[in-house]
Simulated scan of single mutants.
Amino acid sequence: MAAFVLERFIPDSPETVFDLSLDVDLHLASQSSRGERAVAGVTSGRLGEGDQVTWSARHFGIRFRMSSIVFDVDRPHRFRDRQTRGPFASFAHTHEFLPADGGTLMRDTIEFRSPFGPLGRLVDVLFMRRHLIAVITERNDAISARFS
């Protein structure tokens, strides 16, 4: 399984950053370059424990759908989401919000595996890891922009 961790300091409280991280509308705005839409489940507003959403977006010139569920919600410390249906063999995202001097350290831990066994592992190393880092960084940029 491939994985990476991204961290970002946000100059506001963990509660505020936590809530923004669950906002469907902010997520959609952050992924507008990919034509992302929420097409099923919770399609606007704030996600909560057990909520499901299906995203549709263009990656590598191909439109994909990915359904995910939000779980393990512990406001304002952390929540998790994982793919329930979609292009990955496995995809899980842990969001953590750690109090820091003057704000919040937001930590994203992504664990993923592309399908197709050894070929998928090669894709993960050569392309997918870099692509997913860019996707999460864009989302984090949108959250940070709210505090500029």
Rank of each mutant, 00 (worst) to 15 (best):
M1E: 11
M1G: 09
M1Q: 09
F4E: 04
F4K: 03
V5W: 11
V5L: 10
E7R: 12
E7T: 13
E7Y: 06
R8W: 04
I10M: 04
I10W: 01
P11Y: 06
P14I: 02
E15N: 14
T16L: 03
T16I: 12
D19T: 10
L20S: 00
L20A: 03
L20N: 04
S21W: 04
L22P: 05
D23C: 01
V24M: 03
V24G: 02
V24F: 07
D25A: 00
L26Y: 06
H27W: 09
L28P: 04
A29F: 02
A29Q: 08
Q31H: 12
Q31S: 08
S32K: 13
S32V: 02
S32C: 11
R34K: 15
R34D: 11
R34M: 15
G35H: 10
G35A: 02
R37Q: 14
A38F: 02
V39R: 03
G41A: 04
S44L: 04
G45E: 04
G48S: 15
E49N: 03
Q52D: 05
V53S: 08
T54A: 01
S56H: 06
S56Y: 00
A57T: 00
A57E: 06
R58Q: 10
H59Q: 12
H59D: 11
F60G: 09
F60L: 13
G61M: 09
I62C: 01
I62Y: 14
R63V: 15
F64W: 14
M66W: 15
S67G: 11
S67C: 02
S68P: 09
S68N: 12
D72C: 06
D74A: 12
R75E: 14
H77F: 11
H77T: 14
R80I: 08
Q83Y: 10
T84W: 02
R85L: 14
R85H: 14
G86N: 07
G86H: 05
G86L: 00
P87M: 14
F88E: 03
F88H: 08
F88G: 00
F88L: 02
A89D: 12
A89M: 11
H93E: 11
T94I: 14
F97S: 06
P99N: 08
A100F: 08
A100V: 11
G102R: 05
L105F: 03
D108N: 09
D108H: 08
T109R: 12
I110P: 00
E111A: 02
E111H: 08
F112Y: 13
R113N: 02
S114A: 09
S114Q: 08
P115N: 06
F116Q: 01
G120C: 00
R121M: 13
V125I: 09
L126M: 13
F127T: 14
F127Q: 10
R130W: 15
R130L: 09
H131Q: 15
A134R: 15
A134F: 11
I136N: 05
R139Y: 08
N140P: 05
A142S: 13
I143M: 01
S144C: 15
S144W: 14
A145G: 02
R146L: 01
F147V: 11
F147Y: 12
F147S: 04
S148D: 13
S148N: 13
S148M: 11
